[in-house]
């Protein structure tokens, strides 16, 4: 077992190293650069050269890479060119925003998806079923940014029910403790701040949650239909069990297995959708940070963001593989 762990760890290090090289070369070969992004019309060759010299961008790429790698190995993920803050600090601010948004998007998707899917299956062929099937098709197909703009235009601007963007009204002047704004309001008993943050999160959460919602509805419906046709359900009915008991204990429980798997997969995909949603709703999370970093060519920020995401991904994969090895002895032998 130990050998497996060591082998896998070595593979992980190698993977990350190759990725870091590719990323570094790709970033440095993007046209333009942070210095001309910073100076705009004022970017005379002398100014650009001086700033690039200062930042070490005039060195050969392998020298720059070596220095960067050395710092990473010492736990220094660098400083954002844009804000002058350590990238880890920026991440600390943005991460709660993305988690908060993803949590509510998932809450929306699961909370609405499972009941809708179940009801559609139970009243198969009804008007409701048809509406759910068509609705979920549309839901899967609609582009995130389009839905975002649509909701902004109709609900925020047309009806003025909810704010169109941001995480909190600036005039609320809320105290921030954890940077989970809704939680912060509860912690500090600034109830109005919590409520305000809650209002701000509704539209982006719906936008981000729509695709998962549609997926969950479809899988729940299909799974419930499958289970309804199982022999044990017929047996239970024949035994004269109460309909509520059959639904709760036999149908829903068994139907949930594939749904839970789907929820897991969708959670992983949420982060990708968050990049667009955050941009549309000016939601200062990881996606916003990434998009801004690309526009401004903020090398240190992009390098850290990409490497850390890869690290998380690789570590999760490692844990999954190791758990297989524990469960299934055949994996160890290979």
């Amino acid at each position: 077992m130990l050998r497996v762990v060591i082998r896998r760890l070595l593979q992980m290090v190698l993977t990350l190293w190759v990725l870091s090289v590719l990323m570094y070369v790709w970033l440095r070969n993007l046209p333009g650069g942070p210095v001309s992004a910073l100076l705009g019309e004022r970017a005379t060759p002398e100014r650009v050269a001086e700033l690039e010299r200062q930042l070490g961008y005039d060195q050969p790429i392998w020298v720059q890479y070596g220095r960067w790698l050395n710092r990473i190995l010492h736990g220094d993920f660098g400083t954002s060119l844009r804000t002058g803050d350590p990238v880890l600090e920026e991440l600390g601010r943005a991460f709660p925003a993305t988690i908060e948004l993803s949590f509510f998007a998932l809450l929306f998707a699961v909370g609405l998806g499972i009941p809708l899917g179940y009801l559609a299956a139970r009243y198969r062929g009804s008007l409701l079923d048809n509406a759910v099937v068509i609705g979920s098709l549309v839901g899967v197909a609609v582009p995130v940014f389009f839905l975002g703009y649509l909701l902004q235009e109709s609900i925020a601007e047309g009806l003025a029910w909810l704010p169109p963007s941001g995480r909190q009204s600036v005039t609320i002047n809320a105290t921030h403790v954890t940077n989970f704004f809704i939680l912060d309001g509860i912690l500090t008993r600034e109830w109005d701040a919590s409520l305000d943050a809650l209002k701000h999160i509704i539209l982006p959460a719906i936008t981000l949650g729509t695709i998962p919602l549609a997926v969950i509805v479809r899988i729940t419906r299909a799974s419930v239909l499958d289970v309804l046709n199982e022999d044990y359900v017929r047996t239970a009915e024949a035994k004269g069990l109460k309909a509520r008991t059959i639904r709760g204990r036999h149908v829903l429980r068994n139907a949930m297995l594939p749904v839970v798997t789907a929820i897991g997969l969708q959670t992983g995909l949420l982060l990708a959708g968050a990049v667009l949603t955050e941009r549309v709703f000016v939601w200062r999370g990881l996606g916003f940070l990434l998009a801004e970093g690309i526009t401004e060519r903020d090398y240190p920020r992009l390098q850290a963001l990409i490497l850390l995401s890869a690290l998380v991904y690789v570590v999760v994969n490692l844990l999954v593989d190791l758990s297989y090895a524990i469960i299934d002895p055949r994996v160890r032998v290979r």
């Binding site: 930042l55 720059q64 660098g78 002058g84 920026e90």
Partner: peptide, 30 residues
């Protein structure tokens, strides 16, 4: 590293004579 580090004066304590004084820059909220 690959960036500039600014002192506190430039990030959180600018002091001038103008009609407004600096209170804070909340980066989480922008």
């Amino acid at each position: 590293g690959e960036a500039f580090i600014y002192p506190e004066y430039a990030t959180s304590h600018p002091v001038g004579t103008g009609p407004y004084r600096f209170v804070e820059y909340d980066e989480a909220e922008g």
